[in-house]
Simulated assay, not measured.
Amino acid sequence: MIPVDRMLLSSLMLFFVAGAHAADGQKVFTQGGAQPGATACLACHGADGLGLAAAGFPRLAGLSAGYVRKQLEDFRSGARANPVMQPLAKALSDEEIQAVSQTLAAMPAPAPPPLTRSAPAEGVGARLALRGAWERQVPECVTCHGPGGVGVGEAFPPLAGQPAAYLAGQLNAWRDGTRRNDPNDLMGHIAKALTPEEITAVADYFAKIDSQEGKP
């Protein structure tokens, strides 16, 4: 039989070895992953993770860890296409994806105002966001993405404050079928019912929501 003290020592050694090899999400975010192709997230998404609107790079800070993890896994598998993110995600290990997803979820992010269907809806973008277009079976965005586009759970990410170019780009990708990694292709159905002008309008609406004053 192995003495208790030896068993305890072996267990502690295994614990510390495992800890030494655990992925560091903050390091992945600021410096990149262990593989050369896994560049630092902040290079495109900003040191605070709030995105770079001028370049169309979205906010990652405060997004659900489950949502971020799924997107990285989809980039890695090819289920979601992007020439920048696909090779980067392929260079990340499972542990690094898990760690950086949790790090991003814990980063502070602005809280959008609680705009719901009862809020005034002036303009095309506001009407789509708050009222939808039910004659075309298009629900209002806040039904799934939460009041003010705050995001709900792992399937419906925040919309408020994301760059308009990014939001429009994703809607157009769903519209033309180049993005199809959401549950039951819900967004594909919605985006195909929208005109290019409506896509631009609703993307602008969410991009301009003022989290300080509670006004779009």
Results as ranks from 00 to 15, higher is better:
4 V>D: 09
5 D>Q: 06
6 R>K: 03
6 R>G: 13
7 M>G: 04
7 M>E: 05
11 S>N: 05
12 L>V: 09
12 L>C: 10
13 M>L: 06
17 V>N: 01
18 A>D: 08
19 G>C: 03
20 A>Y: 00
22 A>K: 02
23 A>C: 04
26 Q>A: 14
26 Q>L: 09
26 Q>W: 08
27 K>F: 01
30 T>S: 07
30 T>E: 03
33 G>F: 02
34 A>E: 01
35 Q>C: 01
37 G>W: 02
41 C>Q: 01
42 L>I: 13
43 A>M: 04
43 A>H: 02
49 G>K: 12
51 G>S: 04
54 A>N: 05
56 G>E: 02
57 F>S: 03
57 F>V: 05
57 F>D: 10
59 R>M: 11
60 L>A: 05
63 L>V: 06
64 S>I: 00
65 A>G: 01
65 A>T: 05
65 A>R: 06
66 G>V: 06
67 Y>S: 02
67 Y>V: 00
68 V>G: 11
69 R>F: 07
69 R>S: 06
71 Q>K: 06
72 L>G: 03
72 L>F: 00
75 F>E: 13
80 R>S: 02
81 A>Y: 05
82 N>F: 11
84 V>K: 02
86 Q>K: 04
87 P>Q: 07
92 L>I: 08
94 D>A: 07
95 E>S: 07
95 E>N: 04
97 I>V: 15
98 Q>P: 01
98 Q>H: 06
101 S>M: 11
101 S>I: 11
106 A>C: 10
108 P>T: 14
108 P>D: 03
108 P>M: 12
113 P>S: 08
113 P>E: 02
114 P>M: 09
114 P>F: 07
114 P>D: 12
117 R>F: 09
118 S>T: 15
120 P>K: 05
120 P>D: 12
121 A>R: 13
122 E>H: 15
122 E>P: 04
125 G>D: 06
127 R>C: 06
127 R>V: 14
127 R>F: 11
139 P>R: 11
140 E>K: 11
140 E>A: 14
141 C>A: 07
142 V>K: 10
143 T>M: 12
144 C>N: 10
145 H>Q: 07
145 H>F: 04
145 H>D: 08
146 G>T: 01
146 G>S: 03
146 G>L: 12
147 P>Y: 02
150 V>L: 12
150 V>G: 13
151 G>Q: 10
152 V>T: 03
153 G>T: 09
153 G>I: 07
154 E>Q: 04
155 A>H: 11
155 A>F: 13
156 F>G: 00
158 P>V: 14
159 L>N: 12
162 Q>N: 07
164 A>D: 09
169 G>E: 13
170 Q>Y: 08
172 N>F: 06
173 A>I: 08
174 W>T: 00
176 D>Q: 03
176 D>V: 00
177 G>T: 04
177 G>S: 15
177 G>N: 08
178 T>Q: 15
178 T>D: 11
178 T>E: 05
179 R>W: 05
180 R>L: 08
181 N>G: 08
181 N>Y: 08
184 N>K: 10
186 L>Q: 13
187 M>P: 01
188 G>L: 11
188 G>T: 04
193 A>M: 05
194 L>H: 14
196 P>F: 06
196 P>R: 02
196 P>V: 04
197 E>R: 07
198 E>L: 03
199 I>E: 09
200 T>E: 05
200 T>Q: 10
200 T>Y: 11
202 V>H: 13
202 V>Y: 12
206 F>I: 06
207 A>K: 02
207 A>H: 02
209 I>P: 01
211 S>C: 11
212 Q>T: 15
213 E>A: 02
216 P>F: 14
